[in-house]
Structures are given as structure tokens and as C-alpha cells.
Amino acid sequence: MDQENQVQIQELAQKYGCEELIAVLGSADPEMAVIAAESVAGGNLMFIDPIPTAQLGLKAYHIVELKELIDHQVYLRHMEMMEMILDISRIIEEVSIVRKRFFPSEVSE
């Protein structure tokens, strides 16, 4: 996640409040998804550090976790091919772990 994205997310969180927002991730790679989920939950953990003191406190979900909430045909049109190459179970597991770590009392799954 680049600096500008982080700053934009921070501004949105300040304007609308974290409880009204989730971050939706599209990373093809579990490691990158974890870094992004950690960044929006607990501030920036990357080597570039534009907002070192920010604690965004946003929960992140990967798009594959939201499949049931999306119109099936729309999901298929955009994600059917990606599902073949993504390590879906690992992405879900790792992103869930980040949520549990940062929001232990709020996240049940």
C-alpha cells in the first residue's frame, strides 16, 4: 500500500469514523494482504512511514471473504479467474488472524 493510499484511508477514517468503514483488500498474495490489513488496523508497518503515530483502527476484509455479500454473477465476472490462482483459504485465514489480533473483542469469526 503506497503512502498516498494510506493518507487517503486515514482521511476517510477521520471524516466518517472507523465504525462506518471497512477496508476491502484485493491482493493476490497472502503476505501482501496481511501487510495491508495490519497497516489499516494498527498504523503503518511498512518501511516507508508517513503516518507513524496513526492508529487507523480499520478492519480489513479480503474480497474473497465478502463473496456471499456480492451478486453472484458480478462476482463471477470479475473473480472467477482469480479464484483459480488465489490461495483463498490461506488469505482468509491470515487476514482473519490480523482482525482477531487487533480487534479481539469485536470479531467473532
Partner: peptide
């Protein structure tokens, strides 16, 4: 940098397109 093998990722997508 955590970006993986970008060339190979393209070819995975092309292969999945072939499956579709």
C-alpha cells in the same frame, strides 16, 4: 519487496483464462 514474481503471475492469469 513483497511483490512476488510479477511475470509469472501474468502467466498464471493467462493459464486460468485458458481453463475458463
Amino acid at each position: 519487496t513483497g511483490c512476488g514474481d510479477i511475470a509469472k503471475r501474468n502467466y498464471s492469469m493467462i493459464a486460468s483464462l485458458g481453463i475458463l
